[in-house]
Design a protein around this nucleic acid. Structure first.
Lengths: 243, 243
DNA sequence: GGTCGGACATGATGGCCGTCATATCCTCGG
DNA sequence: CCGAGGATATGACGGCCATCATGTCCGACC
């Protein structure tokens, strides 16, 4: 609980964040002097839609969903993992957060007050480039999500979701590809734009058929090729036998 | 046809682009010396998916759709109008264009070679800010589109599309709100993620009911309030009268 | 230990809409 | 002047999936 421990944790966090990794040690400790850490439990809100963004924030531990919470259903826009800045758009434009952020796991956030962040931005042009890179990633992720949500059947969309997750956070084990992420069926539904029941139907069938296994805080994909078939053959119009 | 005329047209274009408007006249004419103009007819491709981005481009006349062209159907990601940079992401990261761009109307493009553009970026930090602003606009537009595509009925989504268009490019006339944009039913379908037939069914019914009129290269919305009703009441569970 | 809430699961039903087929109108080119 | 192609339009049919209902399991909390 000593301030020293805290300071060391912050310094450690700053060192490991990709965005700051290339900086000189002096610059790093300067940033560490301005930043703080905040911890969240699973399910806890980092912020709500409409909140004013007081700080620039980076995920240093855990995972976060950015979610538009509707009265009857939610939409998950994007998932953020370790090392990624979250909510960058709102902070930069000083606009109310357009969506809420919720911790999917026990999560630690590196928090840099808005004012300090803008001073750093002025002094280090490469930070602007980091922001542009981050926004690029966002745009590409969203366009891919648009592709996925269109037309296709629910099964296809869920297959594509897990293939994407496999690429981003999958680890190969002897059972197959392991996804160390905790997602409820509701969250899977929100990610592909369907209802809980439909998500459940697909996932429980896949469990029986051995396509995708749900475990404690993880999923396992025995055969990615199998998933890829399901992802490809979705709503494709029964193309004539000769077409 | 004289080079002088060309040079004057370019200079004029540079002056009118929002991004360059704040610059000193000297800087503007410097840019004008590096840039060129290219004209496109309706339906012509500005580029195809996968092309390498050789230049930074801004729409100075007309309108452009950015579209993912699938074998069986297309998805329109975004529309770009006068003054807006198009394809900024691909140029900045020097990645192949992730989608094609097609002129919706006779269109003129201000073209700045990649190399020159990056030199300008290095010298003018405010250009980086302009890019960030543009990407922010993109992200917000895409998230809104995700909202719209989810769940709702086709009629609801088309209503939301035209409300959005009304905000962005609508002009009030005595007949109602006029949208000076030429869109085929196919393009409307691609914008909201449905089929031509469904789009036609909705639009022709709206024509009969006087909700939205299709004219020569334009649409007319007699009553926006009427459209707003249709946009709100889509798949929504009966929201109480007081909510 | 009992209760309450949340996550997971499964069946029945109805409607939206994607697909296919057909028809009209208009433009363009030979 | 006629045929081809494209945009618009309308009807029939069928399947996916949202909705509603019901039930089980399990951990949390008193």
């Amino acid at each position: 609980m000593s301030g020293n421990d805290q300071a060391q944790r912050v310094a450690e966090a700053v060192r490991t964040v990709p965005m700051f990794r290339g900086l000189a040690p002096g610059a790093q400790s300067h940033i560490a002097g301005l930043a703080t850490l905040r911890d969240f439990r699973r399910g806890e809100h980092l912020w709500h839609e409409g909140d004013p963004p007081e700080s620039f924030t980076i995920v240093v531990r855990g995972r976060v969903k950015v979610v538009k919470e509707g009265e009857s259903s939610d939409v998950i826009y994007e998932l953020f993992g370790e090392g990624e800045p979250v909510g960058a758009i709102a902070v930069y434009n000083f606009m109310p957060y357009p969506a809420a952020a919720v911790a999917l796991e026990p999560t630690t956030l590196l928090v840099l007050p808005r004012r300090d962040w803008f001073e750093l931005l002025d002094r280090n042009p490469e930070f602007a480039r980091a922001i542009i890179r981050e926004l690029t990633r966002l745009v590409l992720g969203l366009t891919r999500k648009l592709d996925e949500m269109r037309g296709q059947t629910v099964e296809t969309r869920i297959a594509q979701l897990f293939l994407t997750l496999a690429e981003r956070i999958g680890r190969d084990t002897k059972e197959g590809t392991e996804l160390p992420i905790q997602l409820t069926r509701q969250e899977v539904a929100d990610l592909v734009g369907t209802t809980v029941e439909s998500a459940i139907r697909v996932l429980s069938r896949w469990g029986r058929e051995g396509v995708l296994l749900t475990g404690e805080k993880r999923f396992v994909i025995p055969s990615r090729a199998r998933l890829r078939e399901l992802a490809g053959a979705g709503g494709e119009s029964t193309r004539g036998p000769l077409a």
